[in-house]
Simulated scan of single mutants.
Amino acid sequence: MKTRWIWVLLMTASAAQAEEPLGCVEVTVGGYKAPNYDCLSQQMGNNPEGAAAAQKNMEAMNVPVHKRPPNQLGLATPAATSTRMGNTFGTSVKPQRPPN
């Protein structure tokens, strides 16, 4: 009868160790908090919606070329040309240069 209780106790202990904790434990030592980064990483990595969100982020980053703004394509824009030409924009073909 004793061996049966020991066996049940061991099975319960091993089942408790196999379960993942619901929350992470923060330990305070000498006034400093020390979170369990392994637990936090597991919680962040086990999100089933995370893969879908990562896929949407990649799709948002890959904008087709015909929808990109001209400054991302290396084309001249009026604002960039005005900055490059200075006060001669619209009056001369030579950019403004400071006096030597």
Rank of each mutant, 00 (worst) to 15 (best):
V8Q: 04
P78R: 11
G30P: 04
L73F: 02
G90P: 07
T91I: 13
I6S: 07
T83Q: 09
A51E: 11
Q43E: 15
V27W: 00
A54R: 15
P69A: 01
V27C: 00
H66F: 03
L22D: 10
N62M: 14
N57L: 14
P70K: 04
C39H: 10
Y32Q: 11
Q55I: 13
T3F: 09
L9T: 10
A13C: 03
E59P: 05
G74M: 03
N36R: 02
G86T: 11
K67D: 08
S82W: 09
H66G: 00
Y37C: 06
E26N: 09
G74S: 08
N57C: 09
E19S: 06
T77A: 03
K2T: 05
K33M: 06
G30F: 05
Q42H: 14
R4G: 03
A18P: 05
N36F: 04
N36I: 10
V25R: 00
T12D: 04
N100R: 13
L10G: 08
F89Q: 06
E49C: 07
E20Q: 08
N62L: 15
P48I: 05
E49A: 14
M1G: 15
L10C: 12
L22A: 03
E49D: 13
A53T: 12
M85H: 11
T91L: 02
A34F: 11
P48G: 00
C39L: 03
N47Q: 12
W5C: 13
N62K: 15
G23V: 09
G45P: 04
K56T: 11
L9P: 00
R4Q: 01
P78W: 13
G50N: 14
A79M: 07
F89L: 11
S41M: 08
G30I: 06
E49S: 10
T3P: 05
N46R: 09
A18N: 08
V93E: 14
S82D: 14
N62G: 02
V27H: 06
M11Q: 14
P78M: 10
A15G: 04
A34D: 11
M44A: 05
V25E: 10
T83C: 00
W5N: 15
T28A: 07
N36E: 02
S14Q: 00
W7D: 05
